[in-house]
Design a protein around this nucleic acid. Structure first.
Length: 498
RNA sequence: GUCCCCAUCGUCUAGCCUGGCCUAGGACAUUGCCCUUUCAAGGCAGUAACACGGGUUCAAAUCCCGUUGGGGACACCA
């Protein structure tokens, strides 16, 4: 069964299925969803969230998740954008079962279906030019009217189109379209509000509203789940499915993501590209967790593993209202993932950032195990991997880089003799032991009649160069005996000079 | 302008469908305290919301209508 489901997921592998009847049954009942971005820029977080909901549903239903690139606007689509989309999808771990299909590779399909509509009387040629249309639209708007196409070519019955003619769909003019939306519930549209939309441009390219329908139908999409901004496209698309004789899929419209000013999220709200979050040191799992929770919930639970997400996901618990993107909460979730993810995997994600920060050689000189140990040392403190780079920096290399202020305040001639005593005691121990060294440290503090902090801070600065760090003895453990002693000497030297 | 969607703490949300258990729960942020060798983390406590107005009902955050507010769509863009 498992193998069968897997194989029906992939079109090209159909022939491997054991039995045709079984296969047909599976295809008929199988959930098939898609993510269909247009390659006109980077992959933004709103798109990722849409993809995520589709992906979750597909995985839960053991259905197929299809990636389709909607690039019929040849003037705005770029190959770089396609690469950016694929890169982003891979980073957040949204694997697709089919595709990526590109609409520009399917032109014949759209044209053929457009011709079918023409032949069946569901479409007609329109010779109004773009300029005329634009002028009429402006005119209508100025008069406070709806800027819709007036349908003047509808009755012309043009059979021999000019070079510049476009093909329009003959939309139903009366009655209603009722959409039973997975998320919003029942929505009713009057057909009188819908005009005859162009399905084939004068350059022969299909328009969005037509190519989506053809593709969704031909790809046997069962659930069309997309952004809220497509809601009003739905009553325009349903009649096309019907005119073409295709079954109408189920629709679901996800609420938008808003910026802090409640306006649609855009560049001016800061980073919206998913890859920007990678660069800022976010973990993909944290992004996924945050994005899903933005608009979906499961009781009071905040943190979910990916499997939990798949198991617990439901359209019923998807919010119907828009949500404001909250960077603070995302940061918190990221910190949670940094704290709870396996240190070795965090370390792995950290390496590229370390290299970018100019620590390439130092990183190459250490083991993966030590790096993981380093992650454990600082994971409670770092909210992002970028943060972590700074937290971790003092532990590379032989010498400590003293922060000027810190050294000035704590590495003073007054403390130098005490540090010297500590060093002498530590040197007497043949190997490092957290308990033993800490005990020895506390004993010295007691003997000197000073407070912990009076010795701890100078030692901290000596070892790390800074006034803030993880626990001293954890630091020593990561540094190792030799480097600890070396840096202590270095600190004493600095303190003696004052 | 027309059409569509939406409306619980500052933010994400539970509760709404199937009215009473809600003197509205959780989380982020924020404030205070505790812990403490620093910085974090952690623990405890606090501030803070049913947009408004009408109904329906013994009873409404929950159902209905309206108002207001926000968002989206009205392209030979997707």
């Amino acid at each position: 069964m498992e193998a069968l489901l897997r194989c029906t997921r992939i079109f090209t592998a159909w022939y491997r299925c054991p039995s045709d009847s079984q296969r047909d049954h599976n295809v008929m009942s199988q959930v098939r969803v898609r993510f269909a971005p247009s390659p006109t820029g980077f992959l933004h977080i709103g798109g990722v969230r849409t993809a995520l909901f589709n992906w979750l549903f597909a995985r839960q239903q053991q259905g197929a998740f299809i990636l389709r690139i909607e690039d019929t606007d040849q003037s705005r689509s770029t190959d770089e954008s396609i690469q950016a989309i694929l890169e982003g999808m891979k980073w957040v771990g949204l694997d697709w079962d089919e595709g990526p299909y590109r609409q520009t590779e399917r032109m014949d399909l759209y044209r053929a279906h457009a011709m079918t509509l023409l032949e069946t009387g569901h479409a007609y040629w329109c010779v109004c030019t773009a300029e005329e249309l634009e002028a009429r639209r402006k005119d209508a708007e100025a008069k406070g009217l709806s800027p819709r196409y007036d349908g003047r070519c509808r009755q012309r019955g043009i059979t021999h189109p000019t070079e510049t003619a476009a093909l329009r769909f003959k939309a139903p003019q009366d009655g209603q379209i009722v959409v039973d939306d997975l998320i919003k519930g029942t929505i009713t549209f009057d057909n009188s509000a819908v005009d005859d939309l162009i399905i084939l441009r004068s350059n022969g390219y299909p328009t969005y509203n037509f190519s989506v329908v053809v593709d969704d139908a031909l790809m046997h999409i069962t659930h069309v789940v997309r952004g809220d901004d497509h809601l009003t496209n739905t009553p325009r698309q349903i009649p096309i499915f019907e005119a073409l004789g295709f079954p109408v899929p189920q629709f679901g419209h996800l609420p938008m993501i808003l910026g802090s000013d409640k306006a649609r999220l855009s560049k001016r709200h800061g980073a919206t590209s998913i890859m920007a979050y990678k660069d800022m040191g976010y973990l993909p799992e944290a992004m996924v967790n945050y994005l899903v929770r933005l608009g979906w919930s499961h009781g009071d639970q905040e943190l979910f593993t990916r499997q939990e997400l798949i198991d617990k996901f439901s359209w019923k618990s998807v919010q119907s209202s828009a949500a404001v993107f909250n960077p603070d909460k995302l940061l918190w979730i990221n910190a949670e993932y940094i704290k709870t993810s396996p240190p070795s995997s965090v370390a792995k994600a950290l390496v590229p950032l370390l290299e970018q920060a100019g620590l390439k050689q130092q990183v190459e000189a250490v083991s993966e195990e030590w790096l993981a140990q380093l992650v454990v040392l600082v994971k409670e403190r770092a909210k992002t991997l970028v943060d972590m780079v700074e937290w971790v920096r003092p532990y590379f290399g032989q010498v400590a880089q003293f922060e000027e202020e810190a050294a000035k305040k704590f590495l003073t001639p007054a403390i130098a003799p005490v540090l010297q005593k500590l060093l002498t005691r530590f040197e007497a121990f043949p190997s490092f032991s957290k308990q033993v060294w800490e005990e020895s440290f506390k004993k010295l503090v007691e003997e000197e009649g000073i407070k912990m902090g009076q010795l701890a801070q100078p030692v901290r600065v000596a070892l790390t160069g800074r006034t803030a760090s993880p626990g001293l003895f954890e630091v020593m453990e990561v540094l190792g005996r030799e480097r600890t002693l070396f840096r202590l000497r270095q600190g004493i030297e600095h303190a003696s000079i004052g």
